[in-house]
Nucleic acid binder design. Structure first.
Lengths: 237, 237
DNA sequence: TGTACATCAGTGAACGCGCGTTCACTGATGTAC
DNA sequence: TGTACATCAGTGAACGCGCGTTCACTGATGTAC
């Protein structure tokens, strides 16, 4: 029965399920998602390879569980990084740095959720919720900064009707009440943030950049100007 | 002998090598890099699986060839997209759109070069040259715009010494003569461009954005403001 | 409290598959005299 | 031009491996009377 008092069996089942996911996460961290094998996981756990099928109907479902875990892990870090008060610009910087730090500490998990899709794997809808936690932490800050008048002289590009429709949808979901040109700039900062992290993690800066943290900090400064969090630059003429 | 007149044998060897790469590229386009198999390639070509070893010492070398091909393919498109004249802002937009179009047409090749690294594969140094063609097309435009006075009132963030060192290195390689704050903003636009494309291709916009082209165009507009190509926004106070 | 039955976690063997790579070989192409 | 030899592209069998998934089963845990 759903929601009934858990029996010993139910508790045991949840526990073993957790152990399987934990071991899979461990192997993911070492080898990366494409190399993740059910057999290797069960081998490490000392159980028969066929036993996983009591817990996951197929390999893809284990991967889904790992994706949800990764989104939640980052989402939690992001939510915790948003300090309760202080200037919005500082909170934005801290949030961006926390996201990068998580990515550096969990490169394969980052690749799992923000990297190339796994061939043949189709992410089910249930991953959308956990996925949005991090995004909402970022957009929530923008909303708050806007409402408290901390967005100063942000450039306002005109929007075509098609762009206004798209940006409007984003605004409804994540930044209600914020003018569309500002929402568009927040989206730009969002892509810039993850673009920067992906470049660093996926080796695009290799051979050129020696101190990625310094470059990242500089890029965060630009992001802040793009969103309007940083006065003195990116202002309207 | 290196550089000697090619014998029939040499020509035949180069031709078969080309056919192997072509078939591998075809399979890459369908299945993606992780699923690429030497046996499948040779099977399709009607040759014994062991025959590839006359052309590539190992699977990784085939992948390297595909990476170089992909970088060159995109690089060529990027270079061709830079129109000889017209306002820099229009040329920048055209270039960005050309890069996105290529990515949409070659999603697996895009993932191969800009997506998660292939586990166990280490890209050799020889990929750096082809990789920089696209980057140089972008940075070249910024240099030109700067030299012809087409960068208007771009915000200039201060740089920490560490950031100045990093950005300075980038400037020396790709944007000599351009002031460091502008170079930093160009780097930001660069990460934003590929961040936006990766989000679209890797499914991060799924379930929210219905018309990615419209959002992309809007983001390009923001990029232009970030670099200073677009007057009227992103100006200094 | 005790017994009969149902549930179900976990086993172990098997299926069928594909992979990268090695190796001794054959036979056509090229080279030297 | 003709012959003897060297080169080397391509073959086919084999090695050794790991994978996801199925299936009939055993035996412990839980349920109903």
């Amino acid at each position: 029965m759903e929601g009934a008092i858990p029996t010993a069996r139910m508790r045991a089942k949840a526990e073993v399920r957790g152990e399987i996911i934990a071991e899979a996460r461990r192997q993911l961290a070492i080898e990366g998602a494409p190399a993740l094998s059910l057999r290797a996981v069960t081998r490490q756990l000392g159980m028969a390879s066929s036993a996983v099928y009591r817990y996951f109907p197929a390999r893809d479902d284990l991967i889904t569980a790992l994706i949800v875990e990764a989104y939640d892990s980052l989402g939690e870090v992001a939510e915790a990084a948003v300090t309760p008060d202080g200037p919005a610009v500082d909170r934005w910087g801290a949030l961006c740095r926390a996201i990068r730090t998580w990515a550096l500490e969990h490169p394969h998990e980052y690749a799992l959720i923000y990297g190339s899709p796994i061939p043949g794997y189709q992410a089910p809808e249930l991953t959308i919720g956990p996925a949005s936690r991090t995004t909402l932490a970022l957009s929530g800050l923008v909303v708050e900064a806007f409402e408290t008048g901390q967005l100063v002289g942000v450039g306002e590009e005109e929007l075509t009707p098609a762009a206004a429709a798209e940006v409007g949808r984003v605004a409804d979901l994540a930044m209600p009440g914020v003018p569309l040109p500002i929402v568009a700039r927040a989206v730009a900062a969002w892509t810039q943030l993850f673009g920067q992290i992906s470049f660093e993690l996926f080796g695009q800066l290799q051979g050129v950049v020696e101190d990625p943290a310094a470059l990242f900090d500089q890029s965060v400064t630009v992001m802040e100007a793009v969103v309007g969090l940083r006065p003195g630059s990116s202002n309207r003429a």
